[in-house]
């Protein structure tokens, strides 16, 4: 059977898929932005232990 006819259900599903796509896109952008902020302010820098000279000073 050919699927040439645009049924209302296709419009409804397109809206749902578009909404989900935009949500996932926004989620990616948020995670990217959050990573950039955290990395740039040094949240993931390993804590540095003071050297022997620094301790004696």
């Amino acid at each position: 059977m050919s699927l040439n006819k645009q049924h209302e259900i296709h419009n409804r599903r397109f809206g749902r898929n578009l909404g989900l796509g935009l949500t996932l896109g926004a989620f990616m952008a948020i995670i990217f932005g959050l990573t950039m902020v955290k990395v740039s302010r040094g949240d993931y820098e390993p804590s540095r232990t003071p050297t022997a000279t620094e301790v004696t000073q």
């Binding site: 049924h7 209302e8 259900i9 409804r12 599903r13 809206g15 749902r16 578009l18 909404g19």
Partner: peptide
């Protein structure tokens, strides 16, 4: 048929 019971994105929201 109208398929009004088919959920749209707004229904989940």
């Amino acid at each position: 048929q109208a398929f009004e019971s088919e959920a749209q994105f707004g229904d989940y929201f």
